[in-house]
Amino acid sequence: MSVLEIRDLHVSVETEQGAKEILRGVTLTVRAGETHAIMGPNGSGKSTLAYSIAGHPKYTVTSGTVTLDGEDVLAMSVDERARAGLFLAMQYPVEIPGVTNSNFLRTAKTAIDGEAPKLRTWVKDVRSAMEGLKMDSSFAERNVNEGFSGGEKKRNEILQMELLKPRIAILDETDSGLDVDALKVVSEGVNRVLAGGEVGALLITHYTRILRYIQPDFVHVFVDGRIVEQGGPELADRLEAEGYDRFTTPATTGA
């Protein structure tokens, strides 16, 4: 059973004025079978946390540790992290001109598994995952994310998650840009992945609406680069009712 452990993580980005600290000491443990929701206002650093775990070169870890089953994640390259079992469903998926989705999916699956998938079952798996996400089969032959609508891109992220079978999945605002029907379809896809109890999930969101479909076990309030409060699902309801104002008073932002 996998465990992702984040300890006192500090992360900064390069700006014209020099390094700017975005994450200011994040500590969090995500175990297989657990679903954690991270909720926080715009600009609080939620995506920074997600990208830092995935290894985006823009972010510099200045101190702290991240381990997956005891292995040092921060020492791994981006692709090594993915092969170790980490998956990031991105807030803004990237378009790759000239590369078809099916070629991309097969290449990724081969990389993650260390061997090419059996053609027969693979084609079937892709088709049924796409059907589950109500994606037209034409999306297999289109270039990765090119010309996809916001909602289609999000479905495509969850399609990858279903097929690549990560151990720890981070979903960055997977709900944004989805209408009610799409939100349901996408949430069902996520729930299929989580159903076995073998995957840990970190669900980053701004609003509680996705949490109506995907039950979190833990809710963390993220403000100004750190977790300021933790609780069970009931905390999400309080946030929905009260907003983040309570947490953004100067008392919590002092360093």
């Binding site: 981006v78 692709d79 990389a111």
Partner: peptide
Amino acid sequence: FYLQARGITEAQARRLVVRGF
């Protein structure tokens, strides 16, 4: 980054992008 985040090595990711181009 996107391709690597799906487990694809840098060398192979570059290849995919240039071939795609």
